[in-house]
Amino acid sequence: MDKYSALPKQGVETPALARRISTLLYSKVKLRLTLLLAAPLTWLVLVYIAALLALLVTALYSVDSYTSQIQTQLTFKNVLKVLTGQVYQTVALRTLGIALLVTIVDTLIALPIAFYMAKIASPRLQRLLVIAVLMPLWASYLVKAYAWRSVLSNEGIMQWLLRPLGLDTPGYGITATIITLGYLWLPYVILPIYAGLERVPNSLLEASGDLGAKTSTTLRLVMLPMLVPAIIAGSIFSFSLTMGDYITVNIVGGANQMLGNLVATNVGNNLPLAAAIALIPVLIMFGYLTAVRKTGALENL
């Protein structure tokens, strides 16, 4: 008797076809990769790149002013209108300004929070804080925006808190928009900075102090330069999300409009014009991403 005959026959019963396919996939690297990426790549090309191209092409169409039909003859009329029109320039600059301010405010708030999380808090508290930072993302965007609307209202908590100090709630307007957007995007700014800080070994900070640097000098000469990529990574989120927003400004912005509002109001009656307006944030973001690519920030996302 064969002494192995008592053992189950492993492998022998595997269907020959499955085994042949496995062998084929194992040896053909390119085939394997193609099969793996086919579905997601198709999705990406269709949904993302094709949609972006459609946007670009639509911006070059026009609308017949009598019939309201879209005419597919290519023209730069809408693009020129958006680039030279007073209204569009004003709103574009306002949107850019709000996006910059939201980014600056978020970065300034995120830096100490992320520093505390990464370098001071105990491992247990650190985990709790990460959850606490992520928690607001579970709530609906609309709910949070409306919550701020009530906080900032004339009879709201803000008013109640500030009145004893002789101050008033900012009310609805650009300030309220910046506060609300800053709140909404803060987790997206804290997390990359936190991750970046985690990657700075404590020994570097100790070495700096050991060599005679005061804490402020250590932050300026060691911490900040090493954090630049992480800060830029966070700013990409707050900046691009603000550039595309139109709901928050509707809810707490008073009469102010951002680029998103112009797109939203034109989508119904003049789609080509809406597409042309939508190209502005796309171009600004493209420029920003190109500029920061060199800093290595994109590896931090």
Partner: peptide, 29 residues
């Protein structure tokens, strides 16, 4: 604090500042 003590440390992981050149590292103190 460490920066007020007249001692210096060579760290186990060397703790060189990655964003500085060798000369900038040595000149840091």
């Amino acid at each position: 604090a460490p920066f007020d003590r007249d001692v210096n440390t060579v760290f186990q992981d060397y703790a060189l500042f990655p964003h500085m050149t060798v000369l900038e590292n040595v000149a840091y103190g």
